[in-house]
Amino acid sequence: MKNNPVKRTIFYIFLVFFLTFILFPFFWQLLTSVKPIKELWSIPPTWIPSQINLSYYESVFFKRSFTTYLKNSFIVAGCTTAFSLFITSFASYALARLNFRGKKSILCLSLSVSMFPAIAIVSPLFLFMRNCHLLNSYWGLILTYSTFAIPLSLWNLNAYFKQIPLDLEESAKVDGATPIQAFLKIIFPLAAPGMFTTAILTFIAAWNEFFYSLTFNTADNMRTVPVGIAMFPGDYDMPWGDISAASVVVTIPLIIMVLIFQKRIISGLTAGAVKG
């Protein structure tokens, strides 16, 4: 069965088809980003650039505020990840391990909050941020991003904490450790891989967020990458060269990250939705 040549051939035809479907846009983006200006505007499009032209990259890095967007995105996504992970590591430990009433309601509440449409909470948040002078600031976004970051990491961490055998903790308690000590000395190190996975997922979610960033941080020097790139097009011109160069710069680190942490990301993504 395994070496059935027909099956193999069909498999590889599908494989090539899907790989092309998935990766073609990136490949095209990469080609576009190095095309000489004339070839960028040729009809029909030139496929293979006659020479490598790096002027769009130069323009992205030196003429536009792209590096500022990168910096903003790093700060916002990094702080969101740290903030929500810090808060939820305690909470999800308690939810997974300690006995108290209302645990189920808290988990349900956070799950429903994660599904709130951003548009349904944006206007009060906007008014609140405006009153607190948090528009065009990092903190405004970091706080807002916790609406999706906290439920996300709460559920993920809860699943990881539950996987850790209860015996370890019990024996620590028998040895006279307090719940806090048990958490810090035993659970925390064992949960580290799970926390790392959760951190990657949260970081990517915060890095890609568009809607709040668009509405709250309207000043050019406070924009994050997804919004900054989307604002490249002017009123009359479409700087496709710059857009593709910037997209390549954003995409490559993400591709590398995804390749390195592939297994973790997949397990984290599917943990919530499928009973393992």
């Binding site: 494989l15 899907f18 790989l19 998935i22 990766l23 846009p25 990136f26 095209w28 983006q29 576009t32 960028l40 505007w41 040729s42 009809i43 499009p45 990517i204 890095w207 890609n208 568009f210 990458v225 997804p226 919004v227 790139i229 989307a230 490249f232 479409m238 496709w240 857009i243 593709s244 997209s247 954003v250 995409t251 993400l254 591709i255 990250m257 995804v258 390749l259 592939q262 990301i265 997949i266």
Partner: peptide, 28 residues
């Protein structure tokens, strides 16, 4: 393919929207 499928998921929606927008362009 398992690695490849993560890539569209991982990049910002606005960036992929721009990429496709250029590919859909009527002339270029």
């Amino acid at each position: 393919i398992r690695a490849a499928v993560l890539v569209p998921w991982a990049i910002p929606t606005s960036v992929s929207a721009l990429m496709w927008m250029f590919m859909y362009n009527d002339q270029y």
